[in-house]
């Protein structure tokens, strides 16, 4: 009997798990319609200390393009630090009623950089940027939206036979270290995270299609 039950439980589990990839539920975001978003620096799980500000410096543009008021990230970061919150960990712990009182923000975008940087392999190197994000309503603490992005760029993409690949890997490794390829990947990763239709944020008040977009 047990032998039959186990696979069935497994099948049910599989069905439940695959159900998680359902389309984004925009109900909370649509009901709240935040106008302004505060973005504290991300938590950084990667081994690259620069990831924090590399990511932070590229988050404003897509949010603004999407139609939201974004508080100036560098000024906000400095303001937090001057008021006794030295790192993004402390900033993420800041009580929402304080954020409401001090910044007057409608929502906070909490982000976590999970992977950032370039991995070197034998004849190839891959640059990876992976981020989790969560938009929280300041007044109620409700999660309005959640997103995840994993962006990769491989040096071997140019192709051209084995010798060609070797040269290309060597060249891009040099370029990687000098120009920080992961940082160049950030705008693309941020745009994908925040602006992709049916997965990113709804349009904000400064977007021409505010409140008239198609919602699944």
């Amino acid at each position: 009997m047990k032998k039959i039950v186990l696979p069935i439980v497994g099948l049910i589990l599989l069905a439940v798990l695959s159900g998680c990839v359902a389309p984004m539920d925009y109900t909370a975001l649509r009901n709240r319609r935040p106008r302004s978003i505060l973005v504290p620096p991300p938590l950084n799980d990667s081994t690259e200390p620069l990831a924090t500000y590399s990511w932070l410096s590229t988050v404003t543009a897509p949010l603004a393009e999407q139609g939201y008021y974004v508080f100036p990230v560098a000024v906000v970061d400095r303001f937090f630090k001057e008021n006794g919150l030295p790192s993004s960990y402390e900033m993420h712990q800041a009580p929402l009623n304080k954020i409401d009182e001090i910044f007057g923000a409608d929502a906070v975008l909490y982000t976590r950089v999970k992977q950032y940087g370039t991995k070197y392999m034998l004849i190839n190197s891959t640059t990876v940027v992976e981020v989790d994000a969560k938009l929280v309503d300041v007044k109620t603490g409700t999660t309005l939206w959640e997103g995840h992005t994993l962006n990769q760029m491989s040096s071997g993409d140019s192709g051209g036979g084995v010798i060609g690949m070797l040269v290309s890997a060597a060249v891009t490794q040099i370029i990687n270290t000098s120009t920080d390829q992961a940082h160049q990947l950030c705008p693309q990763a941020n745009a994908e995270l925040l602006c992709t239709q049916n997965r990113g944020l709804l349009f904000g008040p400064y977007h021409p299609q505010y409140q008239s977009e198609q919602i699944p």
Binding site: T60, Y69, V70, F71, A74
Partner: peptide, 11 residues
């Protein structure tokens, strides 16, 4: 100009 631009400048 983008949001936060003048705030950053003022800072």
């Amino acid at each position: 100009l983008p949001p936060g631009f003048y705030a950053h400048l003022g800072y």
